[in-house]
């Protein structure tokens, strides 16, 4: 049996890592909620963002957290262009088309990264990467604490954009009633692209939060995709709040399972929850539609 300190620390760690998972899932759930597509290029786009953060650090000496401010608009633009000029036109709006195009894109992106950066594992070394925040007897990792804060802030910001801005209102209108929205003069293709762009921009922030403690290679994003899907389902597909709570929850579940079962079998816990939620309440914790 573990001492309470170890257990508390595991829970805290799960919560903090879960927040970053949530950030990755936020983009995915936003895109699903509006475009009704499962974006299989999400993992590859996360990898792109991580390389961008690495480049900013390596070539321009920018701190990964500061680099977020530059990489986010770039990823936003990339996301917009991808949806507006590639995914939208080439998929003809069919589910199968979107599935194939996003999968095809992920193959292209992953191998472009391989050709451009080669296969090396790249890391960023910062002074604060090994820093800890002592809270009582707990030693919390400084980058993780920052990750939790920034993730919560991002979710809040995203909520604000969706509820308090014109583009947010347009996005919600299209999500609810696509045809009606286009009838009142909303440019649906533009709104779709803006949504995709917002979802992709979230990845830039996640990448900035991950890079101080993680590494990047052309296949890195794949490690986070399945867990992000799980969170999206758990929280309810399309729900921002759901993704946030779902992410925190999955982080904690993963921590507890791996503390007691080991990391390998611990992964089963995540998928069992995923299956159970789908079977019992497919709309997830906060899903709107049935």
């Amino acid at each position: 049996m573990y001492s309470p300190i170890i257990i508390f620390e595991a829970l805290a760690n799960g919560l903090m890592l879960g927040a970053v998972y949530a950030l990755i899932a936020l983009g995915l759930t936003l895109i699903y909620g509006v475009l009704h597509i499962v974006n299989f290029a999400h993992g590859a786009l996360l990898t792109v963002a991580m390389y961008a953060i690495w480049l900013a650090f390596e070539k321009f000496g920018l701190d990964p957290y500061l680099a977020i401010l530059i990489v986010t608009p770039l990823m936003f633009a990339l996301g917009y262009a991808l949806q507006r000029f590639i995914i939208g036109p080439s998929s003809h709006g069919s589910d199968n088309g979107i599935l194939l195009v996003t999968l095809g894109l992920s193959i292209v992106i992953q191998n472009l990264l391989l050709a451009g950066f080669s296969s090396d594992t790249l890391t960023i070394a910062t002074d604060y990467a090994f820093g800890v925040v002592p809270i009582g007897p707990l030693l919390l990792s400084l980058p993780r604490v920052i990750g939790l804060g920034v993730s919560l802030l991002t979710a809040l910001l995203l909520w604000f954009v969706l509820n308090r801005t014109d583009i947010g209102k347009a996005i919600r209108a299209v999500a609810k009633e696509r045809l009606g929205a286009s009838l009142v003069g909303i440019n649906v293709a533009h709104v779709y692209a803006m949504t995709f762009a917002l979802g992709t921009a979230c990845l830039a922030i996640a990448a900035g939060l991950l890079m101080p403690t993680f590494y990047v290679s052309p296949t890195t994003g794949a490690a986070f995709v399945l867990v992000a899907f799980t969170i999206v389902v758990l929280g309810g597909m399309g729900s921002i709040l759901g993704a946030l709570i779902g992410g925190l929850l999955i982080g904690v579940v993963e921590a507890v399972f791996s503390l007691f079962l080991g990391d390998s079998l611990g992964q089963i816990g995540i998928f069992l929850i995923f299956i159970l939620v789908l079977l019992v309440k497919p709309t997830g914790l906060f899903g709107a539609r049935g």
Binding site: S90, S91, L100, S106, I107, Q110, L112, S119
Partner: peptide, 19 residues
């Protein structure tokens, strides 16, 4: 001679196929 380029071409053809 550059690893990955073949798969990039493969992916692009796939997307064009769907388009």
């Amino acid at each position: 001679g550059i690893p990955g380029i073949d798969l990039v071409v493969f992916g692009i053809i796939l997307v064009l196929c769907v388009a």
